[in-house]
Design a protein around this nucleic acid. Structure first.
Lengths: 219, 219
DNA sequence: CATTTTATTTATACTTAGTCTAAGTTAGAA
DNA sequence: TTCTAACTTAGACTAAGTATAAATAAAATG
């Protein structure tokens, strides 16, 4: 019998997942978790064979959960069912040792397959995730593709720009010349095929370079 | 017996919802829908007493679904279970005639209560939504609070700014002087207590004034 | 090891965008 | 009507940004 903990901030998803798990023979749900703290406590105590979790739920779970669960319960296999759309973070989670990865767009069949595979200690990735992995493995596929082609310094500057800082302020912050900022900015625009600084900000936000702090219903 | 159609793009939520609905006596799920088209077809044919739907799932459902269902099946009551965080759109959906409104953060108890209430033709709003409604009803509550204090024109301009357009371009688009744009921008900054144009863009994105187009897995 | 590339830094001269201040117009509310 | 809010504009000025060119250090390549 494979023991499973179901972790998701939304009760509907937990219930749905349990219902689907009923269909899988040899699988037993031994616990549920609504947030990271609860999951870690229960994982430590119950040492489940599998943890199913959506890590992308601000203030309930974040992507560090994978690493933390692995630390607290090394033999546990992780099945991610998330709706994350940030490539870099998905790659991160894959590297952090998640065994299987689905998106919330997957259908029942895929979910069942994934659960069965993960329960047997195998890996399972849904189509979208496989596409990402392949894209990463064969970088020169389309053209400039995949993750941000920006250098660390460029990311740093883009982040500050997106926070509303103007070149002079950034220069002061980093103790370098404003001209340097301009050069970096120009290179960023070139690399991303953008034209205005504003588009840079939009890009930064879209790609989660800065946290537009998830605050539903606040102001 | 109250007939219900469950509409959600994610199979897990649909399954979860059906499972919870099992607990409600006198409720029968007569259909499910994965996208707007499916929901409208089934609503027309089955004329359900209640439709439960998450309208905030780009490319599957949008907020117009409420109006469309009401058109196609006027006697159907709508129960929204969404995770939308855009106040203006929530207000829109409330005005469009949705009977009850929950968020995906609600617990099982609230969901059951909402289903029972809606099935009886009553209205039900969860805490967060009630807070919003109250906030709207008593605008001068705290201080400058609640929805954006921007005029339509200011919003229009902010939107264009956030799209990366520069004053001159916006002026050309709207057939007015660039100076006008500058003035509007200055007023916006003043109203929102911001200092740089970039912060304006961040604000616009945070408040959903422009759609940072939901495109998972694209570049 | 020498060499090329990449990331980082900077400057000068120039262009453009944006700010400040001030003010006119229209439409609706008091 | 009078007053306010929303929208509009201009001239003079300041600050921000661009183009071009180039130096340095470190990492990758042959």
């Amino acid at each position: 019998m494979v023991s499973v903990i179901v972790a998701d901030a939304q009760v509907l998803c937990r219930v749905g997942l349990c219902k689907v798990l009923d269909l899988a023979e040899d699988v037993e749900v031994i616990g549920q978790a609504e947030n990271a703290e609860e999951l870690l406590t229960k994982s430590k105590k119950l040492q489940p064979d599998v943890v199913i979790v959506d890590y992308n739920q601000p203030s309930f779970f974040d992507h560090h959960i994978v690493r933390k669960v692995k630390e607290i319960s090394p033999k546990t296999d992780l099945l991610i069912i998330s709706s994350d759309n940030r490539k870099d973070r998905i790659y991160q989670v894959l590297e952090d040792g998640s065994n299987s990865f689905l998106t919330k767009q997957c259908d029942e069949g895929e979910i069942l397959d994934a659960i069965r595979a993960t329960a047997k200690g195998e890996k399972f990735y849904c189509h979208k995730i496989l596409d990402l992995i392949i894209e990463r493995s064969f970088p020169s596929k389309s053209e400039d593709c995949s993750a941000t082609p920006l250098t660390p310094r460029e990311k740093e500057i883009l982040t500050l720009v997106a926070k509303g800082k103007v070149a002079k302020e950034i220069a002061a912050d980093l103790h370098i010349s404003p001209h340097t900022i301009y050069t970096h900015r120009k290179n960023i625009l070139k690399k991303l095929h953008l034209t205005s600084p504003m588009e840079m900000v939009v890009y930064a936000l879209e790609h989660g370079l800065i946290d537009l702090n998830d605050k539903p219903f606040n102001s």
